[in-house]
Amino acid sequence: MKSPARRKTRQADPWGRRGFRNPAIWLTDHAMVARDSLAFVSGRLGTSVVVWLLVGIALALPGGLYLLQANLGGMMADWEGRPGLTVYFEPGLAAERPRAVRDSLADDERVAGLQLTSAEEALTEFQRFSGISDALAHLDRNPLPASLRVTLAEGLPVETLDDLAEILTGREGVDDVSIERTWMERVQAMTEAVRRLGMLLALLFSVGAVLVTATSVRLAIEARLDELRVMKLVGATQAYMRRPFLYFGLYYGLGGALVGSMLISALLLFLEPPLARLMGSYGESLSISGLTPFFFAQLLLLGAALGVGGALLAARQRLTDLDVLGN
């Protein structure tokens, strides 16, 4: 009898990875599995529709919130005007001072726009606005100050306004600087809150989508356990055995993303009239930014990734220690 000692057999290794060395065969096999899996998924339409709906809802909520967050800032900006501050000069000040302050800011990169309202213009405006011209005509002195409206350049944080305000407060003839910040901060806080909520929901619902596909793929695996056992017996690799199930996951995820896209579109269609009224846009339609083919492509990609992720999870749980012949 030969020695049981292990011999050096590196070069004689008969069971190294061979697999699909020919990419054409590999591709053919994928195409075949893709087709068979599609037949399986469409053959069990009842189950598939439920999975698609669940995954679709799971994707629509964070997707919709993402759109809302992307649009909220923009909508509010259009609605209320751009952020800025107003410099109020001392009443009765000579008209040169305000002009000098305005000119000093003309080249400042932080400033997008400057609009000077002289004391006289303010008075005229007030008279036209209030209609009490008579009473004011009797005043010997214009009680209204000149003012300078400074608009913040795009893309700058609101804190920039504080810096500007500090410089301007020290200028000669400046009475008061008022920053229109409260609504800005609210919008920013709101956008941030919606963003965080969206992220949290996206995370939770993604886990949900993964679990839904994992569960359905697991059921599909259970239904084909006999076949899988035989496959393992005749030497199928893990990759080969789980391939059809990854395609199930892919189809579940993609279908779910399609349902999700439809849900988001339907939701927006439903919400458009009241939103348009809210935003004061009296035209018929409201342009929602972000509702682009790219957004939908992202949604499909996310759905596909979550679906395949769920399938991988299920395959890992069920196929790794698949027992054959009751061992």
């Binding site: 069971w15 990875r17 393992k232 017996l233 030497g235 012949l325």
Partner: peptide, 14 residues
């Protein structure tokens, strides 16, 4: 990972 290739070299009947 080599087990499948090993099993491919054995025929089994039950």
């Amino acid at each position: 990972r080599r087990l499948p290739y090993y099993r491919q070299g054995i025929g089994a009947v039950f």
